[in-house]
Structure formats: structure tokens, C-alpha cells
């Protein structure tokens, strides 16, 4: 509890550099946007998650790292409402107890692959979620057209996914997620498939867009640099069954410049996190070896 409190003040202090509205926003929201307590998930004989505890406050960007197969994707599927955790869990959305299925349509979810529809052009892919919500196409397209420049897609609205590069496809997918305006955005390794250079560009760009739009984000990655560079907090998950092993507050000032990754602070954070991850990776390795 103390950790959470301290951490909260840290976030509020951080917000001091942002505009006034967001300070009030953060200060007013004493309860977390979403809260998971004692969440477990079993698939047959495999325990993917055990007594997982996560809480995310409005406006936070929380990153999650962990060894492969630690149940990160299961956590995401629960938060997206696609999977129900084992009974006995506590799941609160804005303080209201909910079942995972209540979250369907309440969270904007971006999976690892862009999953663009090949028969829809950039604009129509971006407005997919809006269309499903029942917004008239013309209106949705207009909304999306205004967002194109910010996503580096101006002039590409009529292109089809097979005409786009990997980075652009990913930006279309992100735009689709942004247009589906929900309190919580879940990003599951969105840049995992991109080359290193494109990835750093996308990270910086994501921070810009996030700061402008003030959205709450949970971001899964296997890249520690990415987790620190983006996050207000980094959660390290244990090997299966997944729990939160370490909750690391990142107090690097925002806006973060690209060269922050070489700062001493960054490197000491990276050291702590890598040690924690290494320990867990070894465990899952040994389990696999048996």
C-alpha cells in the first residue's frame, strides 16, 4: 500500500509540469481506473496467472515486461474482456466490481499483429471500431481524416494495407485503437515486429501522441529499454504462473528525449529490471528443462 501511495504522489508531482486540467484530473481520481486483485487463470493443468495484483490510475502509462510465456497475453485478454479469470478474483473498473466480460467494448485493445483488414483502405481500417459502435461512416471518416497527419499517414488514406510498410501498418492499427475512445488502452507489443530504428521512432511518436491525448495505457513489451522509456511505472512479471514480481516507478522527467536512454538514472533502472527479469527467465528455463 505504501508503495502505491508514494507512487501516486510521484505521478501527481510529475503532472505538475503538465497543464492544470490534468493535475485536477489526476488529483480527483483517487481510486484507480482499473484494479485487479487475486486474479488467477488456469488453462487445464497450466496455471497462467496466480494472485495477480495490478492497479492503474487514470492518465498513467504502465508498461509490463516479463519472460516469454509468463501470461502477459492472458492478462491482456482478461483486461480486454476476452477471457474470464478463475472464480474468486476481484476486478474493479472505476471502483465498480465487474466480470471480465463487462469490459468487452470498454477497453481499446491493440494486439501484437496489426490485424488490418486487407479489403479496407487506411481510413476504413481506422474507423472499424467507430463503425461497430454505430457511428455513420461519413462522420467517422471525417474524424479519422483529421487524425491522419498526427499519425504520419496524411495522403495515405486511400491506400490498402498491402501497399504500406510495417511501421505504417502499425500506425494505422494504433490510430484505430486511438479512435476507439475508451478509458483504458491496452497495447500488446505493438512495435515487436518492427526493426530497431523504426521502433525507436515509433516509441517517441507514441509518447507525443499519448501526452497530447491524455489516455491511460497499459503497454506490454519484452524490451526493457522500451518499458523504461515509455512507462510511468514498469511491472515485472514472474515466470509462469504469472504474478507481479516488481513494481518499479520510473521518475524520469517528461517529455523524454531520445538520449535519455544513456542517462545514469535510466541505466540504473535498467540494471534493476534486467536482474529481476533474468531471475525469472532462468526459472522458466529450468522448468522447461525438466
Amino acid at each position: 500500500m505504501t508503495l502505491v501511495d508514494r507512487d501516486f504522489q510521484g505521478a501527481a508531482g510529475d503532472a505538475g509540469t503538465k497543464d492544470l486540467a490534468s493535475v485536477q484530473d489526476t488529483a480527483g481520481a483517487e481510486r484507480p481506473l482499473i484494479e485487479l486483485r487475486q486474479v488467477s487463470k488456469t488453462f487445464g493443468t497450466v496455471k497462467a496467472l496466480q494472485d495477480l495484483e495490478v492497479s492503474i490510475r487514470p492518465g498513467e502509462l504502465v508498461t509490463v515486461v516479463g519472460p516469454s510465456g509468463c501470461g502477459k497475453s492472458t492478462l491482456f485478454n482478461i483486461l480486454a474482456g476476452l477471457e474470464e479469470p478463475d472464480p474468486g478474483n476481484i476486478l474493479r473498473l472505476k471502483g465498480v466490481s465487474s466480470a471480465a466480460s463487462d469490459l468487452l467494448g470498454k477497453v481499446s485493445f491493440m494486439p501484437q499483429r496489426d490485424l488490418l483488414l486487407p479489403w479496407r483502405n487506411v481510413i476504413d481500417n481506422a474507423i472499424l471500431a467507430l463503425e461497430i459502435e454505430g457511428m455513420p461512416r461519413a462522420e467517422a471518416r471525417k474524424l479519422a481524416m483529421d487524425m491522419l497527419p498526427e499519425f504520419g499517414l496524411a495522403g495515405f488514406e486511400a491506400q490498402y494495407p498491402n501497399q504500406l510498410s510495417g511501421g505504417m501498418r502499425q500506425r494505422v492499427a494504433l490510430m484505430r485503437t486511438f479512435l476507439f475512445k475508451r478509458d483504458l488502452m491496452l497495447l500488446d507489443e505493438p512495435f515487436g515486429a518492427l526493426d530497431a530504428l523504426t521502433r525507436t521512432m515509433m516509441q517517441r511518436w507514441l509518447l507525443d501522441v499519448w501526452q497530447k491525448h491524455k489516455r491511460t495505457v497499459l503497454f506490454i513489451t519484452h524490451d526493457v529499454d522500451e518499458a523504461i522509456f515509455l512507462g510511468d511505472r514498469v511491472l515485472v512479471m514472474t515466470a509462469r504462473p504469472g504474478r507481479i514480481k516488481l513494481e518499479q516507478v520510473v521518475e524520469l522527467p517528461r517529455p523524454r528525449k531520445a538520449n535519455i536512454v544513456t542517462s545514469l538514472e535510466f541505466i540504473s533502472l535498467k540494471k534493476t529490471l534486467l536482474e529481476a527479469i533474468e531471475e525469472e527467465s532462468m526459472k522458466s528455463f529450468q522448468v522447461a528443462g525438466h
Binding site: 485478454n77 476476452l82 467494448g105 477497453v107 494486439p111 471500431a129 461497430i132
Partner: peptide, 8 residues
């Protein structure tokens, strides 16, 4: 799943 998460 993506479509479902949009509430489709």
C-alpha cells in the same frame, strides 16, 4: 477477438 473487444 479484436472485433469482439470493440464490442462487435
Amino acid at each position: 477477438q479484436l472485433m469482439r473487444s470493440f464490442g462487435a
